[in-house]
Design a binder for these strands. Structure first.
Lengths: 141, 141
DNA sequence: TATTGTTATACTCTATAACTATA
DNA sequence: TATAGTTATAGAGTATAACAATA
């Protein structure tokens, strides 16, 4: 317990971030559930605002390509997207949201943004500050 | 696209937070995987630094109590915790980490804290600032 | 009666490996 | 040969409902 006041240990920071992540995760789960989607399905729709291939979607979801088959199957069965063929390379499937899919994506987006108790507690200045810090964290790669 | 400069929309902020969450999630998954744990098992061990009942653990994991039975089963099978009986109320199971469980928990904690590329990009001052903002977000409930 | 934890069930997500159809 | 996507498989997380033991 030799904690110097001037040198912040990462412990507290990571703990806090995990706590905020937990609440945000619960919020996201509730939002997708209201629309009859699993969290991962909602995430997929979000990433498909621009059409992408199966492999690209896998990268964005941080999961193996084999999982995407099932996720896309279920979204396609709900009529939320279509697997289009690509003339230049017939191996590739181009995933395109249907109108219903785009509509549901917008609804989900709205719900996620509405009443996020985490962020509503911050002043406008603090939100700008947090935005700046998060940008720094994500920048580059 | 009528975005006023002075009024920050929550959109960008939420997007950024989700991006940071995604990377942190990948980091956590990698850390637990190295120790032969699922992310949820690692999370459970983390929450059991203090002994808790099944129901308490369920609350902390934001999931139904019925799931905790399986999660605890698997941790118990690995010898990482024990279900102790509570004399005052024989319905309750008191979950206590074994020495091996506590050791693994410390290892996981170390790995999570080490080389978090997200936080290493921030200056000490910025980390303190982020810590303050995250505290505000979590405060109260 | 109410509560704690379990079981049964069914679905989703997950990675690995083997497969297909293209390139 | 290499790549994009699929299938098969097995394990883990998830919620709901019904249940046993205890309060």
């Amino acid at each position: 317990m030799t904690t110097t006041e001037g040198e912040p240990t990462p412990t507290q920071l990571v703990e806090l971030f995990l706590a905020v992540m937990g609440r945000m995760g619960a919020h996201l789960a509730a939002c997708s559930d209201e629309l009859g989607l699993s969290p991962q399905q909602a995430r997929a729709i979000h990433e498909l605002e621009q059409p992408r291939s199966m492999g690209e979607l896998a990268e964005r979801l941080f999961c193996d390509a084999s999982n995407v088959t099932g996720i896309v199957d279920r979204l396609e069965a709900k009529g939320l997207l279509e697997r289009c063929s690509v003339p230049e390379d017939r191996r590739v499937k181009r995933l395109v949201l249907t109108d219903a899919g785009r509509r549901l994506g917008r609804q989900h987006h709205q719900r996620v943004l509405t009443d996020v108790p985490l962020f509503t507690r911050l002043s406008n200045d603090d939100r700008r500050l947090l935005e700046k810090l998060l940008s720094q964290m994500v920048d580059e790669g």
